[in-house]
Design a protein around this nucleic acid. Structure first.
Lengths: 331, 331
DNA sequence: TCGGGTTTTGAATACGTATTCAAAGTAACG
DNA sequence: CGTTACTTTGAATACGTATTCAAAACCCGA
């Protein structure tokens, strides 16, 4: 490992001088600067980022704690986050939330030296909130949020649920199912609540059609099987994410249903795949092109760079709209 | 920031002793160990990973340089890699290859302090190879590989191309297209070559049906449009990845084609999505359940932990097999 | 109680960089 | 040439931990 000392020796200057040319401080004489640059090249010197961090207290590293990538929503946010962070000179350590036990992940994150955290994996009452606060690092939640105040970027989930309900009601559906969860996350909680509230304004609700699940293929599958196995089947389903909708469609097709002729289905998130001609999934999303991850990372980095005071809360709730495509139709 | 010195002071011992209880060396008296543990808790002490790394020369951090996540193949490998690395106590810094200019990414990677690198983004003649070698870190290539020797995990791409050709030939197809590229990557190079070699054994080849592209939606779209716009259209297409196949299907459906009645299509990688009832994509993959990313990261970590000598080359080439589903049929 | 051996301890140092501070050098000006 | 002001330099130190080494404490048998 070649260090700044080695460079210094070779260039015939002190280590301080080497450090100074590294940091582009223009207080080095031209001749010395050249000598140092030359020596660096000859030795193929690369500054040790670890040592730098130790003194600068900056790691230029962020942690992303994301939902799983088999959900296309997180494919898009992860891509945006990593690429934007990179553009701004930050590295991203990625972690995936772990259905059973997030503590291992959090333990790992908490013990790292980081400049900031962006996460989607928080629950409304998550005790991790306090620990994150205690770290005294900027952190922003995207998609989901915690009940306590903090920086977040979300979509108006309640309103989204209502939109879905409205859509189905307008199409004349009477038996409408819901699949999604867990409900202790702000996303599913809001979507479910808004959906149910709206339905109840016009129909009497059949509890057998409301399926709280997690996001695993297994549970979605089970929910669809149960729902369609009933004597009185639904004619429409609101899947609380596109990921769930796509899994549900897989099962429905396996069972021989035609969509939307036999059953309408509406997702949420407006992921790229929803537009594919093999799906043309009706869904709910925001108007803006930039996804929630991108918005979140922009705010986080703004905070790190001092463009936003950290004590002014970032609380962004986007307006949802319906993207009507071909998986829903009138009854 | 509470340091080991603070803990030492509070516990009434020296910093050395604190360090010793941290590293579970059992050469600390019980009474002192307890005092220190107590002080740590009271102060909510977390060891500074940066400082640790500076002396230990280990960062427990890996870099993953991956293809883009809109390719479902990389969704699966990225998930496997990150999760497995985490299990083994390694953090993963993720980078995505950048169509235009990978140098920014590499520059970032090369300047980090890392324990190892796993990457899919290398070209057969990529000059980055030498720089990676020079870092003197273990690195393994998965999916793609370089022409020069190094650790890699791949599938037999040439054989895969032949399999695809065989499949179409058996089904009686005569005009068979190819979409994929760039051909300076080992994957596309092998697949294309094997495919063409096999075809030529039985047919005269129409160059207008061989489309070298990159992996962008734009180019795939263009290739499909061009191919199907011809006077003599193909009756079958080998898309060199499932990702390309799925994009191609999108365009084909948009153009009104039924699959496989109007045109057969075969992908490669056997990604999860290929099994979806909205695709049921015929494709080529390996037999083993574990994906290439998972295999690669296992080898990498084995090397880091000394379970494999770094100088014994890891060169894994998996056997491809055809997964016949419903996007290909006899003509 | 003493001596030898073993365990436990803390002072000192190293890791590679940034930064402070005082000294040395240089330029400008009268 | 002397003075002042400014630029450039290197020695020393700090960052937070692990580790070495020698000293201290302890244990045990004689």
């Amino acid at each position: 490992m070649v260090s700044s000392k080695d460079v210094a020796k070779r260039a015939g200057v002190s280590q301080s001088t080497v450090s100074r040319v590294l940091n582009a401080s223009n207080q080095v004489s031209k001749t010395n600067a050249e000598k140092v640059t030359k020596a660096m090249k000859e030795l193929n010197y690369r500054p040790n980022a670890i040592a730098r961090s130790l003194v600068s207290k900056q790691t230029k590293t962020l942690a992303l704690i994301s939902g799983p990538l088999h959900n296309p929503f997180f494919v898009e946010t992860t891509t945006s986050i990593i690429n934007y962070a990179n553009e701004k000179g930050y590295k991203t350590n990625v972690f995936f939330e772990n259905a059973g036990d997030n503590m291992a992940v959090y333990e790992s994150v908490l013990s790292m030296q980081l400049d900031g955290i962006i996460l989607s994996s928080i629950f409304m009452e998550d005790p991790i909130y306090e620990e994150l606060k205690a770290l005294n690092l900027p952190f922003v939640m995207f998609n989901r949020k915690h009940n306590k105040p903090g920086h977040f970027v979300e979509i108006d989930n309640r309103k989204a649920g209502k939109l879905a309900a409205d859509h189905f009601l307008e199409l004349g559906h009477k038996r409408i199912g819901f699949i999604g969860g867990p409900l202790y996350t702000s996303t599913f909680h809001g979507r479910c609540e808004g959906f149910i509230v709206k339905l109840k304004e016009h129909l009497s609700l059949d509890d057998a059609l409301i399926h709280e699940t997690d996001t695993s293929e297994k549970e979605i599958r089970e929910a669809v099987l149960k729902m369609m196995g009933q004597k009185h089947k639904p004619t429409a389903i609101f899947a609380a994410t596109d990921s769930i909708a796509i899994l549900a469609i897989d099962v429905l097709k396996e069972l021989g249903y035609d969509i939307p002729d036999d059953i309408s289905i509406c997702g949420m998130d407006n992921v790229r795949l929803a537009r594919h001609h093999s799906f043309e999934l009706t869904t709910i999303g925001q108007k803006t092109e930039q996804n929630l991850g991108r918005l979140g990372i922009e705010y986080l980095i703004d905070m790190l760079e001092g463009n936003i005071q950290e004590d002014t809360p970032v609380e962004v709730t986007l307006e949802p709209i319906l993207y009507q495509r071909k998986t829903t139709c009138a009854i």
